[in-house]
Nucleic acid binder design. Structure first.
Lengths: 204, 204
DNA sequence: GTCTATAGCCAGATAGAC
DNA sequence: GTCTATCTGGCTATAGAC
């Protein structure tokens, strides 16, 4: 019951490191800044996590383990493709509005070091497309949706949902939006994107 | 006629800096590595570009000035929305397959420093959506395409085309592809993506 | 213009007191 | 476990010979 309210030092460090690494990246982050955000001494970072690299990896794995369940929503449940798309689009966008740095962090660091992804694949819970592919093909055969390659569809779904967060500065500039109107714009996508996809694939 | 074949030192530096900055980012890049790639001395970088920051900005502006004309294809010509989408999707994907680091570099550095985008907007040739919006609205009124917000459509088009390059490591991992099969996958998107979008908006 | 050598700084890591 | 002080290496930048 003791550590219920007071976060452990280890956890404080992890929270601070998450903030700093996610906004500055591995190279841009400073151990001193992480210590400052955590409100503790720089030496403690090394005491608990040994090195910057190991602290970074802890943050990264944590971040990815938040993202993976989001994807598994669409991949592993038993509902129709239409329902999968609607629920995923809504849930993913809602979730990302709460963690706006997350997609960029993951994408950026995977591009910097492709080997990271190999480590991730060893974990259980790494997203797997087989069930989704089977469901898409089944609905095509039933004449419910138009023929489409399931992998292409999957990438389209992810792209449409993730890009507003990845490319936020660019899109803000192109569409001349401030923070508030951009947020409204993304909010509308919770249903717009699903409609857009379903319009494209639904047999009429 | 003299500098026709032999690139100037200044240009050699810029080419090398492009390679290194685009794969490592501003923080991750090392002046020594840029010098090595250029095959010249580290001191020359400072002689020509004064500082790492200024060299970086030169590379960044160059990169963005390659991207902007690609976007203006879809924004400023007079063809139908359907033709715009088909030609943009084909041209953009073809172009990006030749410059795969470009989208990531732009996105990453804009996220790192949002003020960069302000400098870019001052330039002539910064993409402007007005003509595209007018065309979308006109075609909706003519009953050629289904009602859709032009900005949402624009973001969808960009997202579907750019994401395979931004999220390449992630998509490769999810779909279990190697370099060769991933390239084929992206190659198919040159027409797949256009079909997908047009299916969604075309009035039938 | 091009090089070598080095200044000067900054960040990650550790030693050691408490 | 937590802190202060310090080591060490690496990186940007420059001085100065040629």
């Amino acid at each position: 019951m003791k550590q219920e309210k007071e976060a452990t030092t280890e956890q404080q460090i992890l929270d601070a490191a998450k903030d700093v690494f996610q906004s500055k990246g591995m190279e841009g982050a400073r151990m001193q800044e992480i210590a400052d955000v955590a409100g503790i001494n720089k030496a403690m970072l090394h005491y608990y996590y040994r090195s910057k690299q190991l602290l970074f990896e802890a943050v990264f794995k944590n971040a990815f383990s938040l993202l993976a369940p989001q994807l598994n929503i669409i991949l592993n449940d038993d509902s129709s493709i239409e329902d999968k798309i609607r629920s995923f689009t809504f849930n993913y966008t809602t979730f990302m509005m709460k963690h706006p740095y997350l997609p960029n962090f993951i994408i950026q660091e995977l591009n910097r070091n492709e080997d990271f992804v190999l480590k991730l694949k060893e974990n259980t819970g790494f997203p797997n497309l087989e069930k989704f592919k089977a469901k898409v093909d089944a609905e095509i055969n039933q004449g419910l949706i138009n023929p489409i390659d399931a992998e292409q569809l999957f990438v389209n779904i992810i792209a449409l949902n993730i890009f507003p967060f990845l490319g936020k500065p660019l899109v803000k500039a192109f569409t001349d939006k401030d923070e508030k109107t951009y947020k409204e714009f993304v909010e509308r996508r919770k249903t717009e994107v699903a409609d857009f996809i379903i319009n494209s694939i639904k047999r009429t």
